[in-house]
Design a protein around this nucleic acid. Structure first.
Length: 600
DNA sequence: GGGGGAAGGACCA
DNA sequence: TTCCTGGTCCTTCCCCC
């Protein structure tokens, strides 16, 4: 931004943050980056000329490969609305026009209009610092409903130019305008001008556009003549290379403050062209994925085909608050988050297996603690049970932020179409249950359990060696089989997984009957284990207040998940004990089944 | 060596 | 007085097979 007294801005920001906890944390992070840079420098110093030459050769092969992927047949446009939130607020309240204004509050600013930017006020700047930079700054609270409704209008226009346009946020999108240009015999420049005019006519908002053969370059282009302008890089290799050659690496999406510093300080790379010149060192010092990325940046290649829409990977909720150190207060916050997140999960019809607790301490240190369960969860109660354990383990704490995330969603879409247990049993066991057997527990409640045979060979081998020998996880102790886990049906497994298992999923309406579960007679049998797969969850629920099954070995989980998608976690001993269970104090417990079920 | 989980961090809007 | 939120991806470390 021209006309900004950068030095003054830096000085004010420094003066205002100096000595604060935030500042101290920044210094800590800065030291870590420096350490990383030093480490990479020393690694670089160890490289011989021939090392670098060899890496250069490897990079050349990569470059050759990348060149074959260069696609100049599509015309991409990146559209970015100018100071979007601020512009919407000004449209709704014209008295704000021409005055420095920021959307956000004293703690943080979402965006600032161009008048405010002249003072150095920027998005992601705390409001109190912005106030110092620009004492007349007007604050407006964000109103996302309003922005969403404007965004929808703008998207109507986008849709006319590319029905498959990619919306990146409320104020940004990528459009493939190739067909528009061809069918209407218009240049990309004309299309961009027309689109921007239509957006303005419909909403009163101005936007900037960038046009290039791929999204990576188009994104950079939209920034060139911002605000209310456009810039075009023609679909021509030489033009792309010329544009990229002097382009500062920081302009590229994916290269942020830290990466920029590392590239500059370790490799003296500052513009994209340097990435090709330094390909040998890059290949030597960075991972293959990072090297590929840096090389494609140097070549101006990136994102020319329409990507397939990926399903969501995680869903989270986090809140910043004024410092809390009291346990009750922390758990109350957690409950709020669990409640919020459960609602979100419900509205998106998602269930996940991994729960991640995010904590930001009063000193701005960020910690995450996660837990992957053997079953899917989405209800508030379940989130809370597991997240509470994660939180408990971190106490005492003084926090300024807490967040909760669920990920590891059930990827297999067929899983979602599976029948519930209730449905399964209401139509009988006719659907290809194969080798499975259904045994009913005594009493009226219908409880499925599975039969799995443990091969004699496996048991023998286990007995002989005292450990697993053939990929199974059965163990022999005192002449009886304990620690028996399920595995898949591929050859070599001793335990056979009934296809029935794939028909199951945890459902709430079965919880009552699950609580009446009785352990069938398998405990007395010699060479046969019937394990009800609801058992693990039953235990989890039963001891929700701090009694946890110790995780089975990771390998077992892996195996089990791979084949069954519903792993059994925990250990059930043949002699009727719940073995290796851990209570809330971390003590290992051994309960008899009788004792377990006689509780309350 | 590869797969998976945990933790941390970079980056983006 | 006061430094966000929600998401993705990558890396590193470690365990287990």
């Amino acid at each position: 931004m021209d006309g900004v007294d950068k030095e003054k801005v830096q000085r004010v920001v420094y003066e205002m943050s100096k000595g604060s906890k935030y500042f101290e944390n920044e210094k800590r992070r800065e030291a870590l980056v420096m350490q990383k840079i030093q480490h990479m420098k020393s690694q670089s110093a160890l490289l011989t000329d021939s090392d670098v030459k060899n890496h250069e050769k490897a990079a050349d092969i990569k470059i050759k490969n990348l060149e074959t992927q260069r696609d100049l047949s599509r015309i991409w446009m990146h559209v970015d609305l100018d100071a979007f939130y601020a512009a919407v607020e000004t449209l709704e309240n014209p008295t704000l026009a021409g005055k420095p204004m920021a959307v956000g509050g004293m703690s943080m600013i979402c965006t600032a209009n161009y008048e405010a930017r002249k003072f150095g006020v920027r998005a992601a700047m705390p409001g109190f610092i912005a106030c110092r930079l620009c004492p007349d700054l007007i604050f407006v609270s964000p109103n996302f409903e309003k922005y969403t409704s404007y965004s929808e209008k703008v998207r109507q226009v986008f849709h006319d130019y590319d029905p498959n346009f990619l919306a990146r946020s409320l104020d940004e999108a990528y459009l493939d305008i190739t067909d528009q240009c061809l069918s209407r015999n218009m240049s990309s420049e004309e299309v961009a001008e027309e689109l921007r005019r239509r957006v303005y006519d419909l909403t009163g908002l101005t936007c900037s556009a960038g046009v290039a053969p791929n999204r990576m370059i188009a994104k950079v282009c939209s920034d060139v003549n911002k605000p209310n302008g456009q810039f075009i890089v023609p679909n021509d290799r030489a033009a792309v290379m010329a544009f990229v050659s002097s382009l500062p690496i920081r302009k590229i999406g994916g290269i942020g403050k830290v990466t920029e510093r590392i590239l500059k300080e370790v490799l003296s790379v500052s513009v994209c062209e340097d990435l090709i010149d330094k390909r040998g060192l890059i290949s030597a010092l960075f991972s293959s994925i990072s090297t590929d990325f840096f090389l494609s940046v140097g070549l101006g290649i990136g994102g020319s085909t329409t990507p397939v829409e990926e399903p969501r990977k995680s869903l989270s909720c986090e809140r910043t608050f004024s410092e809390i150190s009291h346990e009750d207060g922390l758990f109350a916050k957690l409950e709020e988050l669990a409640d919020n997140l459960a609602r979100e999960l419900e509205s998106e019809e998602l269930q996940g297996r991994t729960i991640t607790l995010k904590l930001k301490t009063a000193t701005f240190e960020v910690r995450t603690r996660s837990l992957t369960l053997p079953f899917l969860v989405c209800r508030k109660e379940d989130l809370l049970i597991h997240a509470s354990k994660l939180l408990k383990a971190e106490l005492p704490l003084s926090l300024r932020l807490m967040g909760l995330r669920v990920s590891h969603f059930q990827g297999d879409s067929s899983f979602l179409n599976q029948r519930t247990l209730a449905e399964y049993f209401s139509v009988g066991n006719s659907a290809g249950s194969g080798s499975s057997e259904i045994s009913l527990a005594s009493g009226s409640s219908v409880v499925p359990s599975f039969t799995a045979e443990v091969s004699d060979k496996s048991a023998e081998l286990s007995q002989k060696n005292g450990k697993n020998t053939d990929g199974t996880n059965s163990k022999i102790r005192d002449g009886t089989l304990v620690d028996c886990f399920f595995q898949g049906t591929d050859s070599g497994s001793a335990l056979d997984c009934p296809p029935l298992l794939k028909e199951m999923r945890w459902i709430d309406d079965l919880q009552c009957s699950l609580c009446k579960l009785e352990i069938p007679s398998f405990l007395e049998t010699e060479r046969q284990e019937h394990v009800d797969f609801h058992f693990a969850e039953l235990l989890q629920r039963r001891y929700a207040d701090g009694f946890d099954l110790e995780a089975g070995s990771q390998g077992v989980e892996t195996q089990t998940r791979r084949h069954l998608s519903q792993p059994y976690k925990g250990t059930l001993s043949k002699r009727g004990h719940i073995d290796r269970a851990i209570d809330s104090k971390g003590k290992r417990k051994c309960l008899s089944i009788d004792a377990f079920f006689s509780k309350d």
